[in-house]
Computed example of a mutant assay.
Amino acid sequence: MKIIQASKVENQGWNYLQKKVTLKNPLVLVFANRLLLEDDAVIESIRKEFPYEHLVFGSTAGEIVSCNVFDNSISVTAIEFEKSSFVVKRENILDYGKDAQTLGKTLYNKIPKENLKHLFVLSEGSFVNGSSLIKGLENDIDLEVSITGGMCGDDARFEKTVASYKENPKEGEVILIGFYGDTLEISYASFGGWIPFGPERIITKSEANILYEIDGQPALDLYKKYLGDKASELPQASLLYPLNVTPEGKKEPVVRTILNINNDDQFMILAGDVPMNARVQLMMASVDGIATGAQIAAEFAMKNRKADPELAILVSCIGRRLVMNQRIEEEVEHVRETIGEKIPMTGFYSYGEMAPFNESTSCELHNQTMTLTLISE
């Protein structure tokens, strides 16, 4: 595997982390600020610098390259596989009436199945129900095939996200990358580091990712009472106080971030499903807790690997970034220390992360986690 990484911050030139060489038919991952990806001149400059066919673009809430976390930048990772291969497919949620499950089924059906090892998802992040998207992808999936990925970001603006494959980035895109090959080793993990607090309550009215009532009370009204003065800062304030949701009959909870609120009808729209009768509790975090969570995720991802990783893709949540603020690079450094100093790292801050629970293969949508995908041939 050959990897070339470069980043471009504001008006500076391209900064290469490895010697610039020409690659053969690489997969090129481009993570950047949404406003940059909407600038045709910027896209043209990226295409000129990386004149390859398979360019995948995604907007972010912060770009990760090596141990650095940047704002308003472009991060490019070009990957040339020696023994393995990849296939990229795309669909647009706006063509499906925002039905993410049907889109997921369609995308998975478009991917060749022979020797398929892993799927990486890069999804629109503003209004796609990530849980439904995963259900669609896993509808007919081989149990040996794992899924990881993330929902695109838009800093803390929450206006819109953009993504694309080959084309110029636009709203609504969901990109699916299939990785193939017998020699391919892909491991993954996801961990948060957030702490539940306050009473545990029951979701008494919900529909998919819309939360109407908790303990028979309007969900938004109850949530605002907990937030106090910070309620006026919703929905951004919810990134600091997500919900810990344990579906009925399941042991493992998932963390859910609030994407939007409806003050008139007192409901909240979350990044993933919040089933009826699930137990729900508020969460909070410390900087040290989040940094330690990233280390635990890296330890899980490295556990039982046969070979050292050759590439690490990190997807971490915008909420973690807001909590850690100036210390955000600490969680990336914890990952670096755990997986190895020389492993190339790329990734982004997201509106949702996709990965199986540790020790599982069934994918889940997470919020507020550090999610790792480690790849080697």
Rank of each mutant, 00 (worst) to 15 (best):
F81R: 11
E185D: 15
E213R: 02
L239A: 09
S131I: 08
L55E: 04
G198E: 13
V56S: 04
K48Q: 10
R34V: 14
M302A: 09
E333M: 15
L240S: 09
F197L: 12
E337T: 11
R327D: 15
I3E: 06
G172D: 08
K110L: 15
P344A: 01
V335C: 05
R201N: 12
G289L: 03
Q295F: 00
P247S: 08
E173C: 11
P169W: 01
S350A: 12
P275T: 11
F197T: 10
G352R: 04
F158Y: 13
R305N: 04
K2C: 00
V87R: 13
E359I: 00
F127S: 14
G136S: 09
Y226L: 07
A294L: 01
M276Y: 08
V65G: 09
I296H: 07
K166L: 00
P356H: 04
D264L: 11
I313R: 01
H366N: 05
P356T: 08
M283D: 05
V315W: 01
E333S: 13
S232N: 12
V255S: 09
F70N: 10
E377S: 15
K303G: 03
A231K: 14
M345S: 07
E53A: 12
L374G: 05
E167F: 00
E53P: 00
S360E: 14
N209V: 01
R157W: 06
N115Q: 13
I258F: 01
N263W: 00
G347D: 07
E80Q: 15
T102H: 14
L365T: 08
E329G: 05
G352C: 07
V65W: 02
Y349Q: 04
E233C: 07
H118F: 13
Y223A: 06
V9F: 04
L282T: 08
A285K: 07
F31S: 07
L243A: 06
D39S: 09
P356G: 04
G104C: 14
K160W: 02
E330P: 01
E337D: 13
S66M: 01
S206T: 03
E329D: 14
F70S: 12
V323S: 10
F348H: 01
D154W: 07
P51H: 09
I261L: 04
E341I: 07
E167C: 00
I111R: 10
W14V: 00
S350F: 05
E49L: 02
P169T: 03
S362H: 06
N15T: 08
D95M: 11
I134T: 13
A163F: 03
G347Q: 06
N263A: 05
S206I: 06
V255P: 00
Y165E: 03
I261A: 06
